[in-house]
Design a protein around this nucleic acid. Sequence first.
DNA 1: CGAATTCTTGACTATCTCGTCCAGAACCTA
DNA 2: TAGGTTCTGGACGAGATAGTCAAGAATTCG
Lengths: 199, 199
Amino acid sequence: MARPRSFDERAVLRTARDRFWSTGYAGTKIDDIAAATGLGKGSLYGAFGDKHALFLRVFDDYCTEATEATRRALDGPDSGAYQRLRDHVVAIAEATAADQDRRGCLMAKSTAECAQHDGVLAARAQRAFRELEDQLTDCIAAAQRAGDLDDTHDPARLAGLLLAVNRGIEALGKGGATPAALHAIAETALALLPKPVTA
Amino acid sequence: MARPRSFDERAVLRTARDRFWSTGYAGTKIDDIAAATGLGKGSLYGAFGDKHALFLRVFDDYCTEATEATRRALDGPDSGAYQRLRDHVVAIAEATAADQDRRGCLMAKSTAECAQHDGVLAARAQRAFRELEDQLTDCIAAAQRAGDLDDTHDPARLAGLLLAVNRGIEALGKGGATPAALHAIAETALALLPKPVTA
DNA sequence: CGAATTCTTGACTATCTCGTCCAGAACCTA
DNA sequence: TAGGTTCTGGACGAGATAGTCAAGAATTCG
């Protein structure tokens, strides 16, 4: 009934995400995104609205992907929960260390730049953080049930701490910490998690 | 021998810092700073160079102040080291929670926005992080000597972890975490620090 | 006081950037 | 194929923005 889109919306969003990720919200020009995607500005505005709407769309997708990935990494039977938790924290350190461009995490970057002024973005970020924390809580509780962690500690509090450690690793990575240092942080955090008293 | 400056350089730098702190590097206009300080742009450019040079100056001063403040908070005799460490971590959580505007830490914000593209700023931030970590290491070692912490753990590794926790508290605060949640993170981190085995 | 020097102000330039708009292209349905 | 609809590409306008510059102001020294 009309002319169909000639572009793949998801591909365009990925490209736009790359641009915002590299240069931040204020530092990214719509013309950059147009050039990078090959689209005219009319198409961009028609499909996604203005710069802010496009950014929110990109940000929302990123949050969804990030929380989904974490859920996939942490979900599973109680018996493997502690190992999954270990692997997850170590993987964050390794991913941060391996990030040659030091782009870091788009959530961290966008929150730092925009959350103060952009209530919608702040709310979305808060939801994502809460989801990450809940997933950590569930995984810790599972590890406690399996007897791999001391169950006298509140799993929610441990999860809050681990989330902070994860965000801290991310922040220090952007600040130029060495891979070894990031790895050490992850290992130290895991080592301090209270083990069951094998009496 | 010439007309003297009519403004207080430090006051102007404080005002410029406020602007950069609120709206980021890319988001801050030189005209904003000129208006906020009451200076003409010519004076600004004459005294501090271009936007980037001014920003670096502001950033450098901030890093110096931040590391100095931490040194003052952590330095002291072995006997009170553990308490100073506790107070420091809790104070970070409280300061983050009390930050109504959610501006967060200028180091974190600037690093997130600029470190990737700005090698000079990245190097300065890295130095500041290293200093903070060294100060934490010294304080932890002192607490170990005083018998308030188990001295079989490498103080440098514990310091790295605490630095990450501090940066994580900061990041989560910007993401909208509640004061109670931030406080819980600080307390949990402190609770997990290995105490000496009082055998 | 007059000369030399530095500071101040804000107008100005050149460029950038967001968002709009429209003429034409592509496609669907009848 | 014709008509209707949506998409495309890029020119365009309005306003913002970094940095310059020149004329005049303030101060010191001789």
